[in-house]
């Protein structure tokens, strides 16, 4: 009858001495090898207003989605590809990897375990990037508002541009959310990645408060 003590995992991520085939000894820090932990920088929009407006128009009209489908909302994203809703005619495409996406759609509730993955995926996306919070759960926890493991407000962990309410919102509501997001980008208000870089410490403090197994660098590209 001992206190619950979890086995220390991820021992392969710790610093250690390695002997090379030549007999030479050197220190390996896998944390530095696998990730870069440089702080994000603010990338201000271009000073040339017409150019920036044109770029913003392009960004709004060509949306590459990264869907985070751990919540129930993910099921509402699939019909958008079908002939009935056909989001492709609005310039919305799906990409399978965070590196190439611009819009991060959080499909529903985020638990502590998934918020860690959300943060990592969000940080791997290349700016400018935007986030859509789908369903009530991302707004205030929804029906899981008093759960021990569900995050109540998503915007305390990553900057959110558009929230779509409902439990569940219909695919039409999701399309409407994309329209709102497009309008926001065209007006030049979609600067979520810069906001994240500016308030980096606040976001990190919030993330670290709930993620107890912080086995990654502070910022992983």
């Amino acid at each position: 009858m001992a206190k619950m003590n979890y086995k220390k995992r991820f021992s392969d991520l710790e610093k250690r001495m390695v002997t090379s085939p030549d007999g030479e000894e050197f220190e390996v820090d896998p944390m530095k090898d696998y990730f870069s932990d440089a702080r994000p920088k603010v990338h201000p929009p271009s000073k040339i207003t017409p150019l920036e407006n044109f770029m913003n128009w392009c960004r709004a009209e060509s949306i590459y989605i990264l869907g985070f489908g751990t919540g129930c909302g993910a099921i509402e994203m699939r019909p958008l590809m079908s002939p009935m809703y056909d989001a492709f005619r609005f310039g919305i495409h799906w990409r399978p990897t965070p590196r190439q996406s611009t819009v991060f759609v959080i499909g529903g509730y985020a638990s502590v375990k998934t918020i860690k993955r959300i943060v990592r995926s969000y940080e791997q996306m290349q700016g400018p990037k935007w986030v859509i919070g789908l369903c009530s759960c991302t707004i205030n926890g929804g029906m899981y508002w008093d759960s021990y493991n569900t995050v109540n407000r998503l915007d305390h962990y990553i900057p959110v541009d558009v929230y779509i309410t409902g439990c569940m919102p219909r695919p039409e509501a999701l399309l409407d959310g994309f329209t709102v997001l497009k309008k926001r980008i065209k007006e030049g208000r979609g600067e979520g990645s810069n906001e994240y870089a500016e308030n980096f410490d606040w976001y990190k403090a919030n993330q670290k408060k709930i993620i107890k197994s912080w086995d990654m660098p502070d910022y992983n590209w």
Binding site: G141, W145, D146, Y148, N149, V151, N152, R153, H156, K209
Partner: peptide, 22 residues
Amino acid sequence: PYRRDFDTKKYSEETYFPREGR
């Protein structure tokens, strides 16, 4: 958390920044 002496609502309010106006 599944033990009944764990107060999930209190824990959630302390940890997860509940949004006003619910």
